[in-house]
Design a protein around this nucleic acid. Sequence first.
DNA 1: CTGTTAGCGCATTCAC
DNA 2: GTGAATGCGCTAACAG
Lengths: 336, 336
Amino acid sequence: MTPATIRDVAKRAGVGVGTVSRVLNDRPFVSDATHQKVLSAIEALDYTPSPIARRLSLRKTLTIAVIVPFFTRPSFVERLRGVEFALADSEYDLVLFNVETTDKRDAYFHDVPRRERVDGLLIISLSPRDADVERFLQAKVPTVLVDARHPRLSRAVIDDVAGGRLATQHLIELGHRKIAYVSDFLENPFNFVSSRDRHEGYRQALTAAGIPFQPAYHQQGEHGRQQAREMAHTLLALPDPPTAIFAASDTQAIGVLEAAQDAGISVPEDLSVIGYDDIEIAEYLQLTTIRQPLFASGVEGVELLLEAIANPPPTAQQVHLPTRLVARRTTGRLVD
Amino acid sequence: MTPATIRDVAKRAGVGVGTVSRVLNDRPFVSDATHQKVLSAIEALDYTPSPIARRLSLRKTLTIAVIVPFFTRPSFVERLRGVEFALADSEYDLVLFNVETTDKRDAYFHDVPRRERVDGLLIISLSPRDADVERFLQAKVPTVLVDARHPRLSRAVIDDVAGGRLATQHLIELGHRKIAYVSDFLENPFNFVSSRDRHEGYRQALTAAGIPFQPAYHQQGEHGRQQAREMAHTLLALPDPPTAIFAASDTQAIGVLEAAQDAGISVPEDLSVIGYDDIEIAEYLQLTTIRQPLFASGVEGVELLLEAIANPPPTAQQVHLPTRLVARRTTGRLVD
DNA sequence: CTGTTAGCGCATTCAC
DNA sequence: GTGAATGCGCTAACAG
């Protein structure tokens, strides 16, 4: 009825529990004969060790928590999939915490990173503040960031500054000089940094090409297709509208495309549009974009974390992942 | 250093561990005075009870496992989000298992449903076979299906037969009689049943309208935009091509739209297209579709499961969720 | 090589 | 009302 315990197995095999434990954990120094006896007792009883008892005894939770915001957004899901993939064959359980409000974030940042609860913490796309990090460190819970940053925490990061530069350079090379940027709020309650970094890259590329930055060309707003669409409308209604728009994500780029359509402006003839992420739908829309290794970032994050659990590095590690341009049909040479 | 235990709290408060346990679990029969003492000791020590020790003692795992296939597909993520939402405020941890191969599915179906491991199991969009169910039942792990079926298991289901009928009727009302259906393989290794049910509804609507079913009008293939695109090409190249296509998912409908575009066929003038799910991108594409309550299905599944854990129902429960037509711009009246 | 024993941290009897 | 004792199932240390 109730599942068999290690004691049942020991009894049936006519050995002590220590021996059973040894074969369970592939310890050496067990004779082949007893090994066999134990194995068949396990088989006969359909025995599975209780993970909970193991955890208590080992003083490990064998659990990794993942805190991820808005995990329905394509880019976050894809990172999460990388995490799940990398953890699937490990001995760790993956427990999931989805954040859609700052309250939830704060609650999770407060409650989850406790040694009694998890062996490691993976935070996706959410940059914790100093006070949070202070607590993580004090709780001695190995913590790794994916697509987020803090100087004292190990992290797998995409070089979004380079990505922003890449996007902007592409536009510049096509002859554009009136290049706008549509993004999330650079300062936002979740402290997402990618829009900020891409903005930085955008500014760098502009500067390098000797193009002065026009404040009116940078629109920020809530994340979302609809919001991006409105920002693009504003841009296109400017006295001197841009000839190219760089959107901080593919989702937002779609909004920009919509706005162009609304305004009867053809892409890429009259307006070039470039996105960021290369989510699945981007190909369908023939959207030019910056591809970033989303899945790989999750995998890298897990590897950093498992390594940190095994032997804590003296100092925060950082893994950089590359971005690259995927030129499709929404960007084109400027004709005048 | 190492987290405080209940014993530390007891010592500091000058009481026994039993008393601490009582206040932790809001048991009555504790004087206000001691209650206060304990509370301040807990505060002072920044004590959190060890979930693991609790579990061992309570003989509950306080864990719900969710097995979900291809959790990057929009419809599955959205269901999963409902699950996460419903579980967030419970005492249960949500541990995630993603299935992308039948091997993984079989492994999870075999290893996860064990009382030593989880208190409950939620399976999304994956219909287990009799042998699997037999094991679930025998393991006495409460199991609930979401968007999947088995007579002996409780479930939150969408009436996909009705949904398929709805889609087809809509087309019929618009005057179409040459209506094709593009879907996943009705028989597939994962035993996804939604395409099958929608097909059934499609056939029922056809029959009700006195339209004979044309085998050539039903194309099946792997799930995916690209595959749907190819199936649509086949359909459009038929000697007597359909004037309307019902796709088993929005993702596939997008492939159909692509194919129409490839062939220079305009939608909805020369071809009506209807999808299924109403994922976010559907609105952008102005895709007519059948909306199903994805998020709600996850929530319902959790509620069924928590109820089943609290007091196991004598017989499998079933909750039906409704679908409805969202008419947009990819379907139109047949003109000849 | 193998059996025995002492915790792991908590909830839960029992007595007091 | 409250403290002390027992056990949840396992691992690890120790003795043999």
